[in-house]
Design a protein around this nucleic acid. Structure first.
Lengths: 234, 234
DNA sequence: GTAATAGTGTCTATAAGACATTATATA
DNA sequence: TATATAATGTCTTATAGACACTATTAC
């Protein structure tokens, strides 16, 4: 049996790129220029270029780099969403990726580049189907929700969220980030213990003043591998 | 930009179906009848029938039901494997699924059905690239290894492996199963505590004798949901 | 009775949660 | 000095690990 017996399905790649900005969790959305769902907001993505991309991950990475100017420090496959009805053009599958970046590292904040058709959208906005930017194109809201669940789950047992922070950051920023992702308060002592135990970071030697005692800045160690813990946070 | 500008990639579905049999972990492999990789062993799967299947999960489920005679009690998406080179026919992606079943519930043991081209293959065999059944077709060995990692990981924090057992089973069988999956000994006390705490099972009232004290038989409660724990086993 | 497997009691070890305390900065 | 935020000390709690013990069956 060969594929020639069948109508080939459409195959696309879409990415949910998270960042932390203005004390809230946001994802990158683009306004669609073309049909279907013209002028709706959508996840960055598109068709695979079989000549240029060696794998779907390449496609995801290229599309994100095009939009942000940088390669996200974390990119993993999320899930593939497929159905007869998710795309009006026919049976389709989208290989979805999940990525993290510090918005400060992208060119999206820069004024000349500032693009009305590419926006960091607050996750809170996307939970309410009647809010701005809604409804999203295709099943992108469902993909976003799947990604958010994955992020929350991984925040419970790994250091993953640090990839939302800039290259140098304080423990306080890390603490705030985790509380925003999980939507509840976490003892800073617990996070600091894990931060230390992970052995992924080193002091820069610099401190940053916040109106009170100056906080130590940390950076990821060269070649540090992402650490998972044996227990979940509460 | 539409897909018509591109050569469409090939899209298939493949499943890694695990069971426990003769005190070892096995997966279902089929001998390929057609090119490419004719006569090589491969995971059950194939192209999506866009007229019959509403989603890729439907395809996975249909293919497994065709081969085993029953619908596996556990089926989840694993990962999508894609590259320019994994299929000699061109750029291709395979949406891989991960499934568990009790071999006793399938028709694969039944003598008249017994099919030389469908075999339960020991996982130990597949770790050694020079052993029987190797090399597998396409990148199916890599897909299998990804699935095995997922199974081991989930065995550490969930009751998932029970779906490898028949409808009625003893705590001793569950204990043996977990030790086989993890490849190391686990305190039965620890497993029994989790088994109880999960609240997923009920006594059938029947016991089964094993030459010594009779063991209680358990079954999954009606509508029981799979439970995850907050810590991993050691 | 012995042997074998099923199942429990209970102590220890580890890491998270709670929360008080000390440290260092600015005004 | 007061106050704000950074960072640490230490006690409690929850659950896994170790391992000895009791229970029930066949012989």
């Amino acid at each position: 049996m060969t594929q020639e017996n069948f109508t080939p399905p459409l195959l696309t790649v879409d990415s949910v790129l998270f960042t932390i900005k203005d004390n809230s969790l946001k994802i990158l959305l683009l306004k669609r220029k073309n049909s279907p769902f013209q002028n709706s907001w959508a996840l960055p993505g598109g068709f695979i270029d079989v000549d240029k991309d060696n794998s779907a991950e390449d496609t995801a990475s290229h599309k994100l780099t095009d939009k942000t100017g940088v390669t996200p420090p974390y990119l993993e496959q999320l899930n593939t969403f497929s159905s007869k009805s998710r795309d009006p053009r026919g049976w389709s599958a989208s290989i979805a990726y999940f990525a993290l970046i510090a918005h400060e590292e992208t060119n999206l904040d820069v004024t000349p580049k500032n693009d009305e058709n590419a926006q960091w959208v607050d996750v809170g906005n996307l939970m309410d189907e009647t809010a701005d930017y809604q409804p999203l194109a295709f099943d992108h809201r469902q993909i976003f929700q799947f990604a958010l669940e994955r992020l929350k789950q991984k925040a419970l047992y790994s250091m993953l969220p640090v990839f939302c922070l800039p290259k140098e950051f304080t423990l306080g920023e890390y603490h705030t980030l985790i509380e925003i992702i999980l939507g509840k308060s976490i003892q800073k002592k617990t996070l600091y213990r894990r931060f230390e135990a992970s052995n992924m970071f080193e002091e820069t030697g610099e401190t940053v003043a916040t109106g009170a005692r100056a906080a130590m800045l940390y950076r990821l160690k060269e070649g540090a591998k992402l650490v998972n813990f044996e227990r979940n946070l509460g």
